[in-house]
Lab assay of single mutants.
Amino acid sequence: ITFYEDRAFQGRSYETTTDCPNLQPYFSRCNSIRVESGCWMLYERPNYQGQQYLLRRGEYPDYQQWMGLSDSIRSC
């Protein structure tokens, strides 16, 4: 899974293949995501807390595409 700070896969990015309890050191906001394979559970707060979103393989050019309430993703 790759997270992008800006919409349409622009700006600083961070890629991971494992669970991350705290994504804050890698980016300040998340406006687009690419899921290369599988399913990922994302959380608005660190340590798997807050609103959660299940994303399947695909491209999400805007946080509203995954029904996000904000551009805050802090763990996965």
Rank of each mutant, 00 (worst) to 15 (best):
R12F: 12
S32K: 00
R56F: 15
P25I: 04
C30R: 01
F9M: 06
P61K: 11
R34K: 07
V35L: 09
Q65G: 08
D71T: 08
L54T: 03
D62A: 10
S13T: 08
W40T: 02
S13K: 15
E15I: 14
N22S: 11
S28Y: 10
S72N: 12
F3L: 09
R74E: 10
P25G: 12
V35T: 07
Y14D: 00
W40Y: 04
E36K: 07
Q52N: 08
S75C: 13
W66M: 06
R74K: 10
L23K: 00
L69W: 14
G11T: 03
G38V: 07
T16G: 06
S13P: 10
M67I: 06
D62R: 09
S72R: 11
C20D: 15
Q65L: 06
S32Y: 02
T16A: 14
S72Y: 11
T18N: 13
R12N: 08
T2Q: 06
N22Y: 14
S70W: 13
Q64A: 07
Y26R: 09
S13D: 05
D19H: 07
M67G: 06
S28V: 09
E36W: 11
L23D: 01
L23T: 07
T2R: 05
G58A: 03
R74I: 12
Y14S: 08
I1M: 03
C39H: 10
P21C: 05
S13G: 09
M41E: 13
G68R: 14
G58D: 15
D6E: 09
Y63F: 12
N31R: 10
L42W: 00
S32M: 00
G50S: 03
Q64W: 10
N31C: 15
R29K: 10
Y26N: 13
Q52G: 07
N47A: 13
F27V: 07
I1L: 02
C30Y: 02
E15H: 14
A8C: 14
I1N: 01
L23C: 15
F9W: 09
E15F: 09
Y63A: 06
P21W: 08
Q10A: 14
W66S: 15
R34M: 04
Q51C: 04
C20V: 05
M41S: 14
E36M: 12
Y43C: 15
R12K: 12
N22D: 11
V35W: 00
R74C: 13
S72L: 08
Y48P: 02
E5R: 12
G38D: 15
Y63K: 14
Y43M: 03
T17W: 06
D71V: 11
G38T: 04
S70C: 15
Y53D: 02
D6I: 03
G58Q: 04
F27H: 06
Y26S: 13
F27A: 15
T18S: 13
L55I: 13
S70F: 08
S72W: 10
R45G: 14
Y60K: 01
Y60H: 03
D6Q: 14
R34G: 02
T16R: 07
G11H: 02
E59N: 04
N31E: 15
R45H: 08
L55M: 03
R12V: 09
T16V: 12
R45E: 07
Q64E: 12
P25D: 15
D62V: 10
Y43E: 00
G11C: 03
M41N: 05
S37F: 12
Q51D: 08
Q64V: 10
